[in-house]
Amino acid sequence: MLVTRQTRFDPRTTVVITLSALVAVLLVNDSLKLGLVLFICAFMMGKTGKLAMWLNYCRLLLPLIVLLLLIGAIGGELAAAGQSVLKILTLGSLAFWFFQAVPPEELAFALMKWRLPFGVAFVIAYSLRYVELIRREWKTVREVQQLRGLVLKGRGWWHLPDLLGLMLVQVFRLGDELAEALETRGFSTPARTSPFTFRLALRDYLLMLVGILAAVVFCLFNLKF
């Protein structure tokens, strides 16, 4: 088999479980419980060898966390700010886990079973690759300008809009080239063969049920006590 399914469960199962967990975390306002969920997340990352990657990802949330704490400190609501920080870290960790568990292209094509149009599925499946391509171009732009004497520091920040304009042009160029490449390989065809064969099995339904029930119990426990 040259084209096979990569994950053990149907991606839709993972979608349902993650959504349940996200809703539960959004409804919980207890720092202790949020901390517990975060600890479990960290433990699972460690067990699966993704701890370093996860910590690196959490670093991206650092500016937001600092901002929240700053606002909390100024407004005298540091405890509430701390709770929001925990919530953001937990939600972020769940999202991280989700995208680690399900390759985007499998997710997209699984969602087509739920009547998601191919165009939307394609964007979900393939846009991440272009983020990396654009990131690389941005790095090159900064390097080139650094050699011309323009560093994004101090007065150099005045040129940021110009550089972002340049990047916008590059993004459009990449988008055009991609669209042309897709068109030449039949992207607009009305009927196509799916690269994956997905079917929800009994274990998928059971896992979804367990996930939803766990989230409901977690919420009820939080609301009651």
């Binding site: 292209e105 393939y126 490449a181």
Partner: peptide
Amino acid sequence: AQLFSATVRQELAFGLESL
């Protein structure tokens, strides 16, 4: 810019799936 799939296998298969 024309390579959009996650693996070479998927890249080769895309056009065939369009057919």
